[in-house]
């Protein structure tokens, strides 16, 4: 039992170290890579434009539900005028960064892990290395840099659409005055909340995209699963671990910033 726990701990520590080195080397590779801007733009398109519909839809429904639930809770205390504050603070501080990150993991992260896994299996990554191309610099670095820019933008969009969703259900369906709703939003959200939102979004973006890249890039190191099953295992692991890490990192960041 003790030896089993010891082995698992060693494996975990080794894995964390390996992941940290992978991320660090990917950032270092920015200095030796050529034509980086074009690849960052392409990665930004994959993580940004392609994920736009899901961000808009989920953001809208999150705002609608928050408006609906919030109204009936506040109505019990005669505080419907605070609906804007409830919706905005929930979205800006917590739900916006977390839900947007989870949506991006589901859409962009899983696609990324699968794509890299297939590239590893079909020897495309080995081919890059035989050409003398730094595979981390070519495949990973632009995606990490794009994530640092795209995640905060997507989160801002998510929050904005969510606020409109809250306004829609609160004002249009349930009778809160639009002016009351938006003035409550304006009074409630401070610049510190917005900073917290962007810090979380950028951190989640870095963690999740790095983790998805790490699992896809190292598909060949999967034990007991190779070929298509190896890609499937890498993708599943990437999505599950990224989702857990988003929530864990959210707790850590919140405990420091609150």
């Amino acid at each position: 039992m003790i030896s089993f726990l010891g082995r698992q701990t060693l494996t975990l520590v080794h894995g964390l170290g390996d992941f940290a080195l992978f991320t660090l080397r990917s950032f270092q590779a920015v200095f030796g890579s050529r034509r980086m801007l074009r690849r960052i733009a392409r990665a930004g398109f994959e993580q940004g434009v392609r994920c736009l519909p899901v961000i808009l839809i989920v953001g809208m429904f999150t705002g609608l539900v928050l408006g609906l639930q919030g109204y009936y809770v506040l109505n019990r205390f005669g505080s419907e005028s605070l609906l804007g504050a409830l919706v905005s603070l929930s979205l800006v501080r917590e739900l916006g960064p977390v839900l947007a990150a989870l949506m991006l993991v589901g859409q962009a992260g899983s696609a990324l892990a699968a794509e890299l896994g297939i590239q590893r299996n079909s020897e495309q990554i080995a081919a890059l290395e035989t050409m003398g191309v730094n595979s981390l610099g070519y495949l990973i670095t632009p995606r990490l840099i794009a994530a640092l820019v795209v995640y905060p933008m997507q989160t801002a969009l998510f929050v904005t659409v969510g606020l409109w969703g809250g306004s829609l259900s609160g004002s249009l369906l349930l009778g809160v005055q639009p002016g009351v709703y938006w003035s409550a939003v304006e009074r409630a959200v401070a610049s510190q909340d917005v900073n917290e939102c962007f810090i979380k979004a950028a951190t989640f973006g870095l963690i999740t995209i790095a983790l998805c890249c790490y699992h896809g890039f190292n598909t060949h190191r999967n034990r007991g699963a190779s070929g298509a099953r190896g890609v499937s295992a890498s993708t599943t692991r990437a999505v599950v671990q990224s989702s857990i890490l988003v929530l864990a990192a959210d707790y850590v960041i919140t405990s420091f910033l609150v």
């Binding site: 890579s33 020897e123 050409m131």
Partner: peptide
């Protein structure tokens, strides 16, 4: 690596790039 090329059994072509982009890649990088 600059003076040596390797042809894989599976060809290892980049399936998301066109023929021209595949050939341009080693020179670009």
């Amino acid at each position: 690596r600059r003076r040596c090329s390797f042809l894989f059994q599976s060809n290892a072509l980049f399936d998301s790039l066109t023929a021209l982009e595949n050939v341009r890649l080693p020179l670009e990088q």
